[in-house]
Design a protein around this nucleic acid. Sequence first.
DNA 1: GTCGTTACGGTTGAC
DNA 2: GCGTCAACCGTAACG
Length: 188
Amino acid sequence: MTALAGSVPRMMRPTLAQNYPRSGFPLEVSTPLGQGRVNQLGGVFINGRPLPNHIRHKIVEMAHHGIRPCVISRQLRVSHGCVSKILCRYQETGSIRPGAIGGSKPKQGTTPDVERRIEEYKRENPVSSISRIMRTKFGGKGEEEEEEDEIEKKELEDSERRAKHSIEGILGDRYRTHILSFAVQLSI
DNA sequence: GTCGTTACGGTTGAC
DNA sequence: GCGTCAACCGTAACG
């Protein structure tokens, strides 16, 4: 028994489930956004899911105003690791959006060929239709905001869909409204 | 006290 | 329709 708590190797650390035997986390909260959990700072999060867009916005905005990450972390009740990660990504990519979760890698091998074909088509058909199609399909300049709106909309739809299949959905809209206002309060 | 990093459990979505 | 797997998520903890 010589190993002190501070010297326990990472791999020997007790698992979350061991730390919090009931649920793996200190507290579970049912919200319209799914099975929320409460972190050490008292913030609500959904394990495995990205933070809501407005929280991410707030993190970047506060950092922009020169507020230190530790303060942001405490104020928004988001772990500092997460704040750090989001700010790093924002610096690197200029985007606050989470990466694409799930799915498989796009098929490789065909990409250069496809690109070459497109170039050929463009040369042969100098009409703007191809470019237009490409813009429509893959997006273009200044559509970040549109995409964010799109994501917000999707999140809302998702939460509504989940709510319909959760206890609050079953219990009805009045209960849901309570939960919603609770969630808004928690998210400041 | 602050911050970068990383192991971990969990979710998601293409294949 | 279902299972697999890789990529991502945020938290918690270490240094």
